[in-house]
Design a protein around this nucleic acid. Sequence first.
DNA 1: TGTTAACGGTTGTTTTTGTAACTAACAAGG
DNA 2: CCTTGTTAGTTACAAAAACAACCGTTAACA
Lengths: 146, 146
Amino acid sequence: MNGDDDFDLQDFLPYLLNQAAEESSLAFQQIYKDRYGMLRTEWRVLFHLGLYGRMTAREIGRMSKMHKTKISRAVAKLAERRFLTRRRDVDDRRLEYLELTAAGQRAYRDLRGVAMAYDANLAAQFSPRDVATLKRMLQALAGGAE
Amino acid sequence: MNGDDDFDLQDFLPYLLNQAAEESSLAFQQIYKDRYGMLRTEWRVLFHLGLYGRMTAREIGRMSKMHKTKISRAVAKLAERRFLTRRRDVDDRRLEYLELTAAGQRAYRDLRGVAMAYDANLAAQFSPRDVATLKRMLQALAGGAE
DNA sequence: TGTTAACGGTTGTTTTTGTAACTAACAAGG
DNA sequence: CCTTGTTAGTTACAAAAACAACCGTTAACA
């Protein structure tokens, strides 16, 4: 309609990635929200602790690239719901070790199962080879300037 | 660290897509924010109008999957900055046709140029073939239940 | 026609996020 | 020791998003 070069929003990677990300996480989001009243940030912290065991907020931040304020608030909510415990490092009292409680682990394992099935289902519409390509490329794009 | 099946956050598509989307749009976001003080919603509306010409808020909503309140507010801001004009449909007075002004078109063309260069730069790290595969898959994932 | 429902769009209110400033603790150099 | 700087994490406040209720208009149909 306009004095165009050829440009299409559907080909613009940041837009396309956003659309795909939003659409593909919609139903999963619904599950952890309905089942545990969690936010995306909380779900992410839960998964980091479930997957990697005890770690500090700082480490979660480095791995997930979430801002520390988001993590702080997510941790506060998870602690309040008794999904994790906090323990100060005795040598460096700025550090706080976070660890899932039994209840937290149950929630994690439950959602991990959901996530695995969910992911398999998303991938099922493509060839395994293409899925591998997709994930490799996404990892490269997510890596940023590293 | 935990009683795991093999599961990796870096392989979970909704997470991975989100990370890639966020990282890949960071620098672009900076540009339209710095240059025109726009929000993502405003940028999107601008691009829809620039790309497809005159359309209503409802049509933008259908194409972009943005919620109508977001669109309404984005349109209000763009109108206030004289980037678009609104005109009621005489036959159905609920409808309002939106159209870019000359200033709006200039902003659109400027940002479209930035976007094209930006996208090319992102794609440059992969083979053209892989980029094609990626975009095709993202479009499928973004398509949702259609 | 009159009534009810649906639609396009806006507004108000609540949640959630982003940003900056802050506290408490440690580290390094003088 | 005592500044000065840095770090881990929290808090306060502003910006933005989500959600629901709303207005005016059109559609459906008794």
